[in-house]
Amino acid sequence: MLSKFAFVVIVFLSFFGFANPIKIEIVSDYNPSFGEAPGDLATQLLLIITRNLKNDMKIDFVPASREREWRELQNQENVCLYNKVKTPQREAMGVFVSFPLMAFPSNRLILRNKKFVSIEVSLKDALSMGLRIGVTQGRSYGLEIDDFIKANTDRMFISEGNDSAFRLRQMLVQGRLDGIIEYSSVFVTDFPSEEVLKDISFHAIGDTTATIFGYIACSDSRTGRAAVDLFERTLQKRTIQDLIIQAHANLFLPQEEVFISNSLKSAFNIKN
Rank of each mutant, 00 (worst) to 15 (best):
M156V: 07
G161E: 11
F166G: 11
I216A: 01
I158N: 00
A204V: 14
E195G: 03
F166N: 07
G175P: 13
F191W: 07
F166D: 13
F187S: 09
D199F: 06
E160V: 15
Q170D: 11
R169I: 00
L177R: 06
T208M: 06
E194V: 12
M156A: 06
R167P: 01
S201Q: 02
T189K: 11
E182V: 05
D199M: 04
I158A: 03
Q170H: 13
F202R: 02
S164Y: 03
D199T: 07
I212V: 14
I180P: 03
V186E: 11
N162W: 12
A217M: 13
G214L: 06
I180M: 09
V186F: 09
R176I: 11
M171I: 09
D190H: 02
G179H: 00
L168I: 10
G161F: 06
Y215S: 01
Q174M: 14
F157P: 02
G175R: 13
P192I: 07
Y215N: 01
L197T: 03
V196F: 07
G175F: 06
I212K: 01
I158D: 00
S185K: 05
D163I: 11
M156L: 15
F191M: 07
I212Y: 00
F191E: 03
F191D: 06
T211I: 15
D178I: 09
Q170K: 14
L177F: 00
C218L: 11
Y183E: 12
C218H: 06
I181S: 08
A217V: 15
F157E: 13
T211N: 11
V186M: 12
E160W: 14
L168T: 05
I216T: 09
T209F: 03
G161P: 04
D163L: 14
Q174K: 14
L168C: 02
P192F: 11
F157A: 08
A210C: 04
I205H: 00
G175T: 09
P192H: 04
F187I: 08
Q174G: 12
D178L: 03
S193A: 08
V196C: 00
S193D: 14
V173Q: 02
S185Q: 10
T209Y: 05
A217D: 03
R169T: 08
E195D: 10
M171C: 02
F202Q: 02
F187W: 05
S184K: 15
I200C: 07
H203L: 12
D190N: 13
F202D: 00
E195F: 10
D199N: 13
F213A: 10
M171V: 06
R176C: 05
E194K: 15
S184W: 08
G179I: 09
G161K: 07
G206D: 11
G175S: 10
G206F: 06
I205D: 02
I200E: 01
E195W: 04
A210W: 07
L168Q: 13
D199W: 02
D199I: 01
